[in-house]
Design a binder for these strands. Sequence first.
DNA 1: AGCACGCCGACT
DNA 2: GTCGGCGTGCTC
Length: 807
Amino acid sequence: MNVASVIVDVPAMQTDRTYDYSIPDEWKGSIVPGMRVVVPFGPRKIQGFVIELKEKGEVSKLKSIVEPMDLIPVLNKELLALGSWLTEKTLCFKISAFQAMLPAAMKAKYEKFLRLEEGRNPGELHLSLQRFFQDGKEVSWNAIEESGMLTLVHKEVKNGSVEVIYRVKAKGNKKTVRKLYLNVPIDQVDEVKDGLPPQASKQKQIIEYMLDAAPGGDGILASALTEVMATTSSTIKSLVHKGILVEKNVEVYRDPFENKTFEKTFPLSLTSQQEEAIRPILSTIDQEEHHTFLLYGVTGSGKTEIYLQSIQRVLEEGKEAIVLVPEISLTPQMVHRFKGRFGDDVAVLHSGLSVGEKYDEWRKIQRKEVKVVVGARSAVFAPFENIGIIIIDEEHETSYKQEENPRYHARDVAIYRGEFHQCPVILGSATPSLESFARSSKGVYGLLTLDKRMNDGPLPSVDIVDMREELRKGNRSMFSTNLFEKLQGRLEKGEQTVLFLNRRGHSSFIMCRDCGFVLQCPNCDISLTYHRFSNGMKCHYCGYEEGVPSTCPECTSEHIRYFGTGTQKVEEELTKLLPDARIIRMDVDTTSRKGSHEKLLTAFGEGKADILLGTQMIAKGLDFPNITLVGVLSADTMLHLPDFRAAEKTFQLLTQVSGRAGRHTLPGEVVIQTYTPEHYSIELASNHDYNRFYQQEMMMRKMGSYPPFYYITLITLSHEDLMKVVDISEKMTAFIRSKLSDTTIILGPVASPIPRIKNRYRYQCLIKYKREPNLGSTLKTVLDQFQQQYASQGLTISIDVNPYMMM
DNA sequence: AGCACGCCGACT
DNA sequence: GTCGGCGTGCTC
């Protein structure tokens, strides 16, 4: 095996294939598939993944691999195959699929240097370049670029005076600490000590301390030693110099949970309903079969305990478990439950960790130092090799769908891996996605139901308040009389309230009260939103920013003001109405700092505030006994989005939020304010009636030919020139239409809901199909031909199979 | 994606 | 004549 097939780190259509390289003798046998390597590619050096080994290359003259980047492959057989599967299913580049499966730290960084060619001296160079190349040092390309001397350098490179060096750097560094070890056998320590000069008292003390603190030959942190002994590094240095101590750099894991202890918890006894639900899971584990279960359990019905005990069984069989939770609910509370039960066997992967921390957690998984991983979407790629169960909590959450390439859904990946490992996949939710519930009704998934709350407590009572009615009665505030009175009541009783603001589609844009003018982004067809932090108007999509106008640019009226309700505005009004209330606000602004999310929640849990006011992020995981009132300020903002899942999302969110109230002994109340109280998603959420919502929504989906009745694929084209997108979109749609069967519905091309982003016009085509064996190859052709043909002209095509964002 | 190569217009 | 603009095509 002398040749390696490599996928190179160039995400482009033309390079989305393997390139063959010969393996230098010194690496023969150690370079294996799944390993990252540095390879020459054209004049550069870049990262690549070895896919397979073979005897001969496809072309006659092969370049050699420069060096491997790993000792052990980062992708095993299963993950390599999963990569190809992802590529095929999501139509992404192979390199993107591989990179999505690995922590960001493993993505290479590239650097470009210049160096004086051997045997030349600076004097031969152009005068203004000489200062850069003084003592044979490398000069970074950037430095030359900034000084505007690139053309001069180009010449020098051409005539052979200067050499360009390309270097691949690993992004993730292992963290190391300097440790000191006693380098003398115990029985000779006294001898050595006596051999020291009499004035070296500090050195003797250090030796004694080392004996004492690290008897078994364990090292001591160099930093700790200097601190404890109140000594300087020079003393230590001289001991090292004499060979009495040795210094080693030891790899350590960064510990995101440093200074935290997790109280050990033990399996709770299950209710009869839980027993019934867990039985099929356990038997699937025992039989080593693959089966997907939908665990449909109302809030507070004890789904987590089922997860925990299923994992327990898996661990007893010597296998591993993956638990996915939505990013937003990957709260310390959640982590506690798993760390509390399984202790150090748990690795945690979520976006709050630094690149280095994620890298460390990933390596713990790879080295089999943990048995359970709890994490967000990408944790589904955890490099375990003997998986016994995969659990997806809050299965309906849209954050399981990645909105950039590869546009995969964690649920699909989980089921792929479940089949590979012949293990169960558990999808848990109180409000399952229509897709999953439909599959369980058809028997594709096993349905496990928990419809009783563990404490047998009643579900909270829900009031729907018609805000139009409030307006008619002359109440122009954002709080209805009903909600306000209840709020006051809680304050008097010392109970807590959660106020939920659905920010989406409701953020603070600016509107002129006289002419209706709304301030828009000049580059994107979307309104600018007010950001208090920078006191400016900002675009969500391109980052454009401008000042807040004091008069309307259209009619010069001064009645231009914020519209919609941001959390800050609610807070202001709240302080005005209830000056004594202590309020904690949770939104992007107050939780952007690391750990602030947790701090605010803890404070609220400890009763340091009466009202918790926040956005989406408080809808989940909150479980405090003293919360007896939940208010939803405007339930219907999401309903008006151009998304066939709008009703489903609204229902899920309202159900979720309502579940925050009265989870323990005190009964809970929920007030939902809305302008469309008659909408079935709001009405049925208030009755906690998932089944009727499912029926109703299925009817709507059937009428609209949407999932789960049809699969959909969304193609979006964008280009600077409106005429061009329209033209190409039409040609493309005609081509697709000619290739697919006539039972398939093809909508468009039409302008996207956001017709322009970053000055690029966007057109889309929606394909709805039940069975379409030609779809994959047709779409590949579209990418191949149209992209190839128009990419140079600045056209981009994005294909989303099973989209969750229709914008 | 980069980067080189190559073919045309504007300059010392 | 040559410098440098960008369109074209290749990278094992």
